[in-house]
Design a protein around this nucleic acid. Sequence first.
DNA 1: TTGCCATACCTTGAACTGATAGGTATAAAG
DNA 2: CTTTATACCTATCAGTTCAAGGTATGGCAA
Lengths: 115, 115
Amino acid sequence: MAATNPSFMNGVPELLVLRLLRNGEMYGYQLVQAIRDETGEVVSLGEGVVYPVLHALEKSGAITSRRRAVGGRSRIYYALAPAGVSRLSELTSLWSRITGAVQQVLVGEGDAEPV
Amino acid sequence: MAATNPSFMNGVPELLVLRLLRNGEMYGYQLVQAIRDETGEVVSLGEGVVYPVLHALEKSGAITSRRRAVGGRSRIYYALAPAGVSRLSELTSLWSRITGAVQQVLVGEGDAEPV
DNA sequence: TTGCCATACCTTGAACTGATAGGTATAAAG
DNA sequence: CTTTATACCTATCAGTTCAAGGTATGGCAA
C-alpha cells in the first residue's frame, strides 16, 4: 500500500493525539481523557488505542517522551517533534479534503434526472 | 460488537452509496464513477468495495434491485427502500456528530497551560 | 475479423485499524 | 484495608477496505 486511498478515515486517533500535543506536553492517560472530554464524549478512545499510537509516533520520530515524577506518580510526557508537526499538517489537510469531499456528496442536489 | 464506538469512520462507503441512491436508481458501475466524480477524485472507491456494500444493503433490506437491459447491456439498478432512508439519516447524523467532534478538537485553542 | 477497450458484474485474499479485554502497579479515599 | 482512580502496557479479535484478480458483452478500430 502506498499512494492510493489512505483508507479514508484511518489515522483519526493519530490526528487527535498530534493535535492535542501541539498545545503542549501531555501524557497518555491525560490524552485519553482529553479526547473524551473535548469531543463531548462523541469520540472516546480506549487506552488500548492511544498507547499504541503514542508508541508508533515516538518510533517514527513524530514525538519525544520524557519520564517525570509528579506527586509520587510516574508519568510519561510526550512532546511534538518537528516531524510530528509535519505529520500533523499532513493529516489535517487530508482530513479536510476527505470530509469536504464527503460533504459535497451529502449536500448534492436532492434529486437527479430520472433513469 | 454493537453499541460502542462505531469504528468512527466506518460506513463511509455505505453512506455515500445510500446518499447517491436518494437521487434515484443507480447501478453499481455507475455508483463507482459517481463517487469518484462527485468528490473530485478525492474519494475513489473500487468496485471491490461498492459491490459488497450493495449486496449487504440489499440483504438488510435497505435497498432493492431490479435487472434491466439497457442498449443490449444488462444492469442491476438499485433503489432506496424505506429502511434505507432510515439508515441514511442515521449514518448522516453520525457522520455530522463525529466530524463535528473532531473539528472541535482541531480548532481548539492553539496553546494551552504549560506543564 | 480480430483484437482491444470500456462497460458491467463479481469474489477472494491480504492488510490494516481500531476495539475489547485483559494485565500490572501505585496513591488516595472510604 | 478494600475500593477507586490514576497510570502504564500488551495481546487478540473483529471489521473494513484495498488490490488483484475473474467473467462476459458491446463497440470501435486496425
